[in-house]
């Protein structure tokens, strides 16, 4: 799986979890907060995406991530670990 595909998964889950956000308008260099996500919205987006990608990442490793792109990098790290 490529990083672009991972970003697509995250974007799709953002659209499904937030009101009035379209996938095309999401910029991966930004934080989900900029699209109106609150803390529990972010937890839902991240946990649904992880389930879809079949990975499990401890919360402590996710806490310091600043934007969607960094989240995708973290996901890739675990996808490659297999």
């Amino acid at each position: 799986m490529t990083k672009e595909e991972v970003i697509e998964v995250i974007k799709r889950n953002i659209v499904e979890n937030l009101d009035d956000v379209e996938a095309d308008s999401i910029d991966a260099t930004k934080s989900m907060k900029e699209y109106g996500a609150n803390s529990l919205d972010m937890i839902e987006v991240v946990s649904t995406s992880m389930r879809e990608l079949n990975i499990k990442i401890p919360r402590s490793e996710l806490a310091e991530l600043g934007n969607i792109d960094e989240l995708a990098d973290k996901f890739m790290e675990y996808i490659n670990k297999g």
Binding site: D19, G36, N38, L40, D41, E44
Partner: peptide
């Protein structure tokens, strides 16, 4: 009364 933007679980 609930809020559209908040989460309930």
């Amino acid at each position: 009364v609930l809020a559209r933007e908040s989460r309930y679980g």
